[in-house]
Design a protein around this nucleic acid. Structure first.
Length: 387
RNA sequence: GGGUCGGUGGCGGAGUGGUCAAUCGCAGCUGACUGUAAAUCAGCCGAUUUCGGUCUACGGGGGUUCGAAUCCCUCCCGGCCCA
């Protein structure tokens, strides 16, 4: 369960108690979609300061399959991860696979049908099934199956997705309660359930969706769909308004957010939970996050501009990124970040990492992922005023 | 010494008279990445340029032709075979 400890205009702190321990909010989770964070081990994750993580219902259901996970004693056991886990429902796959490429599946009122690109096999997900799988995984936090429309869809199609999301949320909630009873799970042990607020860039649809979901009473509510519009611009106002639609004592989950500055902004708006592939994916691709201690913009004083002309520019950052693949690092024997105590920064030069990427050794991705995760974890500590 | 096949951009390797500054792969350079179908994807990759071109290029030299990486001669270099 969630307990809000304090809240001001720019600061909200709380604690979540789960069967796998406590989590201080706000916090960030890396995506261990298929039961692992790509290219790094559990020990690496711990070294980077990672605790809660996200796994994915749809991916784990396909592989290794629920029988294996149940036999192993649940997803925490299977992964040998003793910290809390949240499972995403597979709703995002509805978006990224089907809305973007209708050949890969079909959404009906009742269910979503995925077609495997590998063997063409059909896989069906219903709201009930998504919840059952998440109980079988044995996670600490779970998410209702939702319909995630692309932000550039016309309003009427977004509305359709909102209606479906609400109906599915209701079915998820009913199934959730059924499972709690059936499995005789106590109130202190029960996983938290999140509804997801859709509505694209339309405030009235977001409000409608939020109100309907709040009536169903979830433990927390997510901001659904991408939080940047079709031009890649952060939907500042929509995200702030949506936070206000969620009761204060409920968790606010900014799904898929985001860049460090997006997270910092969302924390100020009152969002509590974040997850994103950015630190690990960009790390694997050679982009590294580095604190800019010289910058006049600290996490706490930078202001995002709503001026469209400059809103997407790189101004006002409290950090920099580098692409370690760039030639200029070939013989840069300095440390990436002298303030960072990750395995990479403590032991190796930029030149060495550049070399590892040039050679394409997996060690490059491991060291880069660990560094970026450490950066994100330190970011969250700062935002919690722990540093 | 004789015969034979071949020498193409950093490398490998297409092309065998015009639409070739030359397919493609690798290497190289630069981007992108937001509830992971991503160790992926996109662009650039002879030199110059006012971006329309211009110049130098398929081992060297010479020739045939309106036109040659492509045909002929010759030289140089390499592989293989025979002596």
């Amino acid at each position: 369960m969630f307990k809000l400890i304090s809240e001001t205009n720019t600061r909200r702190k709380g604690v979540i108690k789960t069967k796998n321990g406590e989590i201080k909010t706000p916090f960030f989770m890396p995506d261990a979609t298929r039961g692992f964070v790509k290219s790094i081990s559990g020990e690496d994750l711990k070294k980077s300061g990672v605790q809660p993580m996200v796994v994915n219902t749809y991916h784990l259901y396909l592989n290794p399959g629920m029988e294996t996970i149940k036999k192993s004693g649940g997803i925490n056991n299977f992964m040998n991860w003793s910290y809390p886990l949240l499972s995403d429902s597979g709703g995002y796959q509805v978006f990224s696979l089907i809305h973007k490429n209708p050949k890969l599946g079909k959404i009906t009122e009742d269910e979503v049908i995925f077609r495997s690109p590998v063997d063409g096999a059909k896989h069906i997900l219903t709201p009930e099934k998504a919840i059952q799988i998440q109980f079988d995984l044995g996670v600490d936090m779970m998410v209702c199956l939702d319909d995630v429309p692309p932000n550039n869809y016309p309003e009427e199609k977004i509305k359709e997705a909102v209606e479906r999301t609400i109906i599915w949320a209701q079915r998820c909630k009913i199934e959730y309660e059924k499972q709690i009873k059936k499995r005789k799970i106590s109130d202190s042990e029960r996983p938290l359930l999140f509804g997801v607020i859709q509505g694209g860039k339309y405030g009235d649809l977001r409000k409608y969706c939020a109100d309907e979901l709040v009536r169903l009473d979830f433990d927390g509510y997510g901001f659904g769909a991408r939080h940047v519009d079709e031009n890649g611009v952060f939907m500042e106002d929509m995200i702030r308004e949506t936070a206000q639609m969620i009761p204060k004592d409920k968790l606010r989950f900014a799904l898929g957010v985001g860049t460090p500055e997006d997270i910092a902004r969302c924390v100020k708006m009152g969002w509590d939970i974040f997850d994103c592939v950015i630190p690990t994916r960009e790390g694997r691709h050679g982009r590294l996050f580095v604190w800019d201690k010289q910058s006049e913009f600290s996490i706490f004083n930078f202001q995002f501009s709503n001026n469209f002309e400059i809103s997407n520019s790189k101004i006002q950052k409290f950090y920099n990124t580098i692409n370690i693949n760039n030639e200029k690092f070939k013989e840069d024997f300095s440390s990436l970040d002298t303030h960072c105590d990750c395995e990479l920064c403590e032991n190796h030069s930029k030149s060495y990492l550049h070399h590892l990427f040039a050679i394409k050794d997996p060690l490059a991705q491991r060291l880069a992922s660990m560094h970026n995760l450490k950066f994100y974890m330190d970011l969250m500590k700062e935002l919690r005023y722990e540093k």
